[in-house]
C-alpha cells in the first residue's frame, strides 16, 4: 500500500480517510436505506412480493396462479375471486398454509407477518374481485344500544347456532368436520368468516346481513361470553354434559354418602 505522493500527507491522514469513507458510506446508507423503506411500495410491487410469497407457500396446493388443484393437493380450491378477506382470515387464524392436506385446516398459530399477509391478500385480490379486508368501523362492536345487541343475539341464534352452538361453544358437522368454538374469535375474524364462508360454513353476504347487524352479533357474542354464568358451565354443551354430571357428581356423591351412612350404622 504505497501512496504515489506519500510525503505530502500526515501519518494520520490515511486513518482519517478511512474513517471519513466509512462515515460517508454509513451516512449515505442511513439516509438512503430508510428512504427506500419509507417510500411505500407501489401496489404493483406489493402484488409482486405477494406473488413471490404465494409461489413459495401456497402454490404447491393452490397452483402457481391460484387456479386451484395444485400438485400437492387436488382439492385445494381456486382462489380466483375469493378476495383479500378470505386470505386474511385464513392466514391470520393460522389455517393457511395448510399443514395436513387431508383434514380440516385447524385454527392455529399464524407464523406470517402482517406485511406478508397483506401482500398475499393483495395478490389474491388481484386475481379476481372478492370481499375486501374490512375496516374497523365495519366490525367494531362498541356503541350499540342494548336492543341492537339483543337483535344481534337473535340473528346469531337464527344464522349461526345450528353449527356453532347457542353460545358459540362449537359443534359437529358431517364427515369429521367441526364448527369451531367462537370463544376466542376476534371481531374481525367473525366479520371475515361471515363474508367469505370458510370451509363448510356458508357465506353471509352484505345483502343478507349488513355490517351493522354483524356488529350487533359481535357485540352479542362479546357480552354473552363476558357475563357471569350461573355456576360451572359444564362446557356450555347443553343437556348431554348436564346429564353426565348429574350422574357422576349427583348420584355418585350421594352413593358415597350412602355407603358411609350404612357402614356407620352397622358398626354401632
Amino acid at each position: 500500500m504505497r501512496s504515489p505522493t506519500p510525503k505530502r500527507h500526515h501519518k494520520a491522514a490515511r486513518l482519517l480517510l478511512v474513517a471519513a469513507a466509512l462515515l460517508v458510506t454509513g451516512g449515505l446508507y442511513a439516509v438512503v436505506a430508510p428512504a427506500t423503506s419509507v417510500a411505500a411500495p407501489t401496489p404493483e410491487e406489493t402484488v409482486a412480493r405477494g406473488q413471490e410469497l404465494f409461489a413459495v407457500s401456497c402454490a404447491s396446493c393452490h397452483g402457481l396462479n391460484g387456479e386451484g388443484a395444485g400438485l400437492l393437493n387436488e382439492t385445494a380450491p381456486s382462489l380466483i375471486g375469493v378476495g383479500a378477506a378470505s386470505v386474511d382470515f385464513q392466514m391470520r387464524t393460522g389455517r393457511m398454509p395448510m399443514a395436513n392436506p387431508y383434514a380440516q385446516a385447524p385454527n392455529k398459530q399464524n407464523t406470517f407477518t402482517a406485511e406478508e399477509i397483506a401482500a398475499i391478500s393483495l395478490y389474491v385480490a388481484s386475481l379476481g374481485d372478492g370481499p375486501a379486508i374490512p375496516d374497523p368501523g365495519q366490525y367494531d362492536p362498541s356503541g350499540l344500544s342494548a336492543a341492537e345487541v339483543a337483535v344481534g343475539g337473535d340473528l346469531f341464534r337464527t344464522n349461526c347456532s345450528a353449527c356453532h352452538n347457542f353460545q358459540g361453544s362449537g359443534g359437529a358437522l358431517p364427515n369429521g368436520r367441526v364448527a369451531p368454538p367462537l370463544l376466542d374469535a376476534e371481531p374481525i375474524d367473525i366479520h371475515e368468516a361471515m363474508r367469505t364462508g370458510p370451509g363448510e360454513m356458508p357465506v353471509f353476504a352484505d345483502g343478507a346481513i349488513p355490517d351493522k347487524d354483524v356488529r350487533s352479533m359481535i357485540a352479542y357474542l362479546d357480552q354473552v361470553h363476558a357475563q357471569p354464568s350461573a355456576g360451572l358451565t359444564l362446557g356450555g354443551l347443553g343437556p348431554v354434559s348436564e346429564g353426565f354430571w348429574g350422574w357422576v357428581a349427583g348420584l355418585g356423591i350421594l352413593m358415597l354418602f350412602a355407603t358411609w351412612i350404612t357402614k356407620k350404622a352397622a358398626r354401632k
Binding site: T158, S161, A162, N165, G170, G238, P239, G243, G246, W247
Partner: peptide
C-alpha cells in the same frame, strides 16, 4: 323458541 332457529347440542334431558 323460534321455529326458525336451532342450536348445535340440542338434546333432551338424559333420560
Amino acid at each position: 323458541y323460534n321455529p326458525a332457529q336451532v342450536t348445535a347440542g340440542s338434546q333432551p334431558d338424559w333420560y
